[in-house]
Design a protein around this nucleic acid. Structure first.
Lengths: 254, 254
DNA sequence: CAAAACTTGTGCGTTTATCGAACATATGTG
DNA sequence: CACATATGTTCGATAAACGCACAAGTTTTG
């Protein structure tokens, strides 16, 4: 654990304030942010004005809101890993072949975060996820696949601490039951969930990388009607092929 | 201008360090970061360890690199503006109708930043841009369209300060020439560039929002051969239609 | 293999930046 | 108009941050 002397409290506070904006599209007042973070409003004011100076936040009236500047670090991360040039084309080919939108996700603490996707021009169905969307680990196919083939130390910890919320009547509400589902995915090398995160929806996920070393997973979600059992084998085969092509960039190196 | 007393220097330093990672996929050492930022390495060490604690950066050996956590703020911004549910489907329809990938961009300081895109499953052409990619304003169709129909005060300032680099032999190298091109786009209500940012490429952009109030632009880039002059009118018409549908979320309110 | 160069970890005295209380002003609401 | 809420600002106190120096570890070079 990092010693207190090695942590910058002011920087930590600043980042807390930045995150307090969250998805507040209509903006927040300084008073709002002070309440949410628990910091003195003079402190919040200085930190917010610093964010304004840096271009992350803009002021409209007495409200502050995030600017597109917050996308820039994401862009750096994606460029550093050649998402635009290498990953996106492979996802596009995969989505074209199976006829469904596909998404790539990685772990982010006790959640999964979407890092790329290929949406279909023809599709009229969407969950509304984008690059940067966070989804829970325990009730989702991609989450369970990350837990199954991701870093074992992280997975063990996350299985014990990730939020265990109920999304539908079918959501597993017992950590042991989720652990068994993860064990099954570990053995199968893929994961399928139905109705657990969103009712009426089948989700598939395959790992990108070997057992214990997968840094990302590739998955899709579709209404049951669009993805009958008869289509699962072929769809999984295509996902796996794409995952194999993506693997060089996502294996945890030894 | 924000008074010095209203700015948190430590937070500012922390953000400088965070940005110093940029697209460095193989990671940076503390010594690297200290050199790049000019900060004492003990200062850098504390700030980086704070980022590790927050989950933005991970340590491998003696190198540090960005984690997918940096996508989360982007995801918040995109969710706050309903990009997944409202914007992406409209971009998909648009891309399907015109047969090219399309992208939505907003201004970010003296650059444009991609905030959404719909890539084609069938296309084999890509610039490698992703959500979060920053592109220059002066040599690009989307940049000039932002300057033409965006906030006039911002545009005046950006026209004078945005980097004027040369990307191809056809890149305009004179600020006045760029200003005239922007004026033309202002009058036309759309912008077309050829070869200026990337050789052999035609780019189109239309504003999302009214004159002086467009917070985003919609655009595409394709090789000349894929986008003959005969296709321009129909393509522009479809882009404009999509922009009209996107408008409610991107007009600067009065 | 040894030396040199580079990097990192840590302690701690000093300094500075930050904090937050208090006061004043502005805005919104009933 | 009174009250509630929000914001801007000052400034003394002090906590946090800084950065130098020393030690140790790692990598590179000859």
């Amino acid at each position: 654990m990092t010693a207190n002397r090695d942590i910058s409290l002011t920087f930590m506070k600043g980042m807390t304030v930045l995150h307090a904006f969250d998805a507040a599209a209509t903006g927040l007042t300084l008073a709002d942010l002070s309440r949410q973070t628990g910091y003195d409003r003079a402190t919040v004011r200085r930190l917010v004005l610093t964010l304004v100076d840096l271009g992350y936040v803009e002021k409209t009236g007495n409200r502050f809101l995030l600017t597109p500047r917050v996308l820039v670090l994401a862009g750096s991360f994606l460029r550093g890993h050649s998402f635009g040039k290498m990953v996106q084309p492979l996802l596009n080919i995969c989505a074209g072949e199976i006829g469904f939108a596909v998404a790539l996700a990685m772990s982010d603490g006790d959640h999964a975060v979407y890092v790329a996707q290929s949406t279909l021009q023809s599709s009229r169905f969407t969950f509304g996820f984008t690059v940067g969307s966070r989804v829970p680990l325990l009730p989702t196919a991609i989450g369970r696949m990350l837990l199954a083939w991701g870093d074992p130390a992280w997975a063990e910890h996350a299985l014990g601490t990730a939020p265990l919320d109920r999304y539908t009547d079918a959501t597993l509400s017992d950590r042991d039951a989720v652990a068994r589902a993860v064990q099954q995915a570990m053995a199968d090398g893929y994961c399928i969930t139905r109705d657990e995160f969103e009712a009426g929806v089948t989700a598939l996920a395959v790992p990108v990388g070997g057992p214990g070393r997968a840094r990302a997973v590739l998955g899709l979600s579709e209404p049951h009607a669009s993805l009958p059992d008869s289509a699962l084998s072929a769809t999984l085969a295509t996902l796996r092929q794409c995952a194999a092509e993506l693997r060089p960039g996502f294996d945890i190196s030894q």
